[in-house]
Write a protein that binds this DNA or RNA. Structure first.
Length: 300
DNA sequence: TTAGGGTTACAG
DNA sequence: CTGTAACCCTAA
């Protein structure tokens, strides 16, 4: 554990962690392309980011969960008394030394969007959940414990994370984003509507009968047609406008989720509200992402 | 371009 | 000598 070759500085590590929290793990090129992070990580490549993140994850993990590493491969001698449990549940996973690193005001590129009121930016839990399910690669889906474990391992764990996650999973299931079978969650088959031509607004289309415990379906702040209309408007926006709108939607969704969490007594309505807001936010982000991927390719 | 496996260099 | 972190190579 010493200081071997070109040791990463604290600034670089902080930038990496902030970038992962902000953009999500895996988008190394996006993180590197960010003007804020590129200042510190200019001499680092995307591969370096990935490797560093891997090393950090492995170190923080304590290799007690589900990692092979080369250690398991190299060390073939295992004690016959106890073999490693693939689903070791350790609820006391402290993250790195610092908890929330992302204290800087989140600024969308070119989008002069000031999100006032939000204390700290919650990383899109939706994407985290989807990422967790994707990375876990469970054929039958992943249960809440596995998802929570993954997120807690890879990112940081808020104090009331479990309640947060439960509410979020419920909301995602209600909106058809996830499919819940028994106790496992799977990603809904229609998740990509890459085409902006047809107004295929899918998530609330043909399902809702699969949800086992849908208690309330009454009035929602955002109806399906309203979301569709908003997205249709967004497609005609400029990139900056779309980015701002998407960020605003995400912020509102997060705020709604926070309110839903805090109002834990009659959280049903607030939960539905947050779910609808998140559905729109997610769709907006996907639309924005498609736009950026097809149009805004800025060569480094 | 990213994820993963493997190798090298350095610290204990 | 062993373990760890950076580095390197390759497949998807």
């Amino acid at each position: 554990m010493g200081a071997p070759k070109q040791k990463w500085t604290s600034e670089e590590e902080s930038a990496l962690k902030a970038g992962v929290v902000k953009h999500g793990a895996g988008n190394w090129r996006i993180i590197l392309r960010d003007p804020e992070f590129s200042g510190v990580l200019s001499l680092r490549s995307n591969v370096d980011l990935k490797d560093k993140w891997r090393n950090m994850s492995v170190t923080a993990n304590g290799w007690g969960s589900r990692e092979k590493t080369r250690l398991a491969l190299k060390r073939s001698q295992r004690t016959p008394g106890y073999d490693d449990d693939p689903m070791a549940l350790s609820t006391e996973v402290e993250s790195f030394e610092d908890e929330i690193v992302d204290a800087k005001p989140l600024s969308i590129s070119s989008g002069t969007l000031q999100i006032s009121g939000t204390k700290r930016s919650i990383p899109r839990l939706d994407n985290l959940i989807l990422e967790a399910i994707t990375k876990l690669k469970e054929p039958n889906g992943s249960n809440k414990t596995a998802i929570a474990m993954y997120i807690e391992d890879q990112y940081w764990a808020p104090p009331n994370f479990k309640r947060f996650l439960s509410a979020k999973l419920k909301a995602l299931t209600s909106t058809g984003k996830l499919i819940k079978v028994k106790r496992k969650y799977r990603i809904a088959p229609r998740l990509s509507f890459s085409e902006g031509r047809t107004s295929g607004l899918l998530f609330m289309e043909g399902r809702q009968r699969e949800a086992s415990r849908v208690e309330k379906d009454d009035h929602k702040p955002f109806t399906k047609s309203q979301i569709d209309a908003e997205l249709a408007k967004m497609r005609n926006m400029s990139a900056q406008e779309a980015a701002a709108a998407a960020a605003q939607a995400v912020a509102e969704a997060e705020a709604a989720m926070l309110e839903a969490e805090e109002a834990s007594r009659e959280a049903e309505a607030a939960e539905a509200e947050a779910g609808a807001a998140q559905a729109f936010a997610e769709a907006a982000m996907l639309t924005l992402k498609s736009r950026n991927a097809s149009k805004l390719m800025v060569p480094g």
